[in-house]
Amino acid sequence: MSKPWDTDLSIYADEAALLQGLRRRERDACLCMLKHYGPRLYRLALRLAGDPDVAEDVLQDAFIRGCERIDSFEGLSSLGTWLHRIVVTTALMHLRAAQSSRVARATASDGDDGTAFLEYQADERDAPDRAALSAELRAQIEQAILALPDALRTAFVLRELEGMSTAAAAAALGVSESALKVRLHRARAALRDALSHTAVEAGVFQSGASQ
């Protein structure tokens, strides 16, 4: 019996072939999509959701939504960009639903328990210059981002990490551009505080805590 990772994915070497496969509901095409886009979209979902369990739900919902709508994908952007937008929309929907639920339960929690964590592993896709940032420090930075309150984290991730314009990020979050900029100031101040123990020396990032 063949295992999923034994599948020859080279038949989907380009996006057009992958799209055709997805439209034919081919299992191998789904697997190829997960392998190709899954890691980057999971990181996006985790950064936005701030919680690994919620991020998994977000990713699952987003991929299901994407597959359901694949026939209406017009190719105006790349498939990756299209899936990226679906993940952003889905993650924000999850956050809003969770917020409404919290309000309904009249709890005082802001949902920011700071326990979510991305484990970085050695990855051959990292170019040598990128590897200068140690896995430990990357994890610290990701942890600091995940520890931000929802409103600050989502603004920061969309604008600063995903490169959305101020106007687009504000629209996605349903706030004014000024309000978004204030959230960014607050997020950056919190990160500056949280990461103040890190040092940058001669282009090599190190953790001050482990010196």
């Binding site: 789904c30 890691p39 999971y42 690994p52 998994e56 990128r130 990490l161 890190t198």
Partner: peptide
């Protein structure tokens, strides 16, 4: 200092999916 840290994070490759997540997603899709 923060911009230096963030620039390195932006350019880093995404980590691998958590164990079992790809199989769970494939089973749902």
């Amino acid at each position: 200092h923060l911009d230096d840290l963030l620039a390195a994070v932006r350019s880093s490759a995404a980590p691998m999916l958590p164990t079992g997540l790809e199989a769970r997603l494939l089973a749902r899709l």
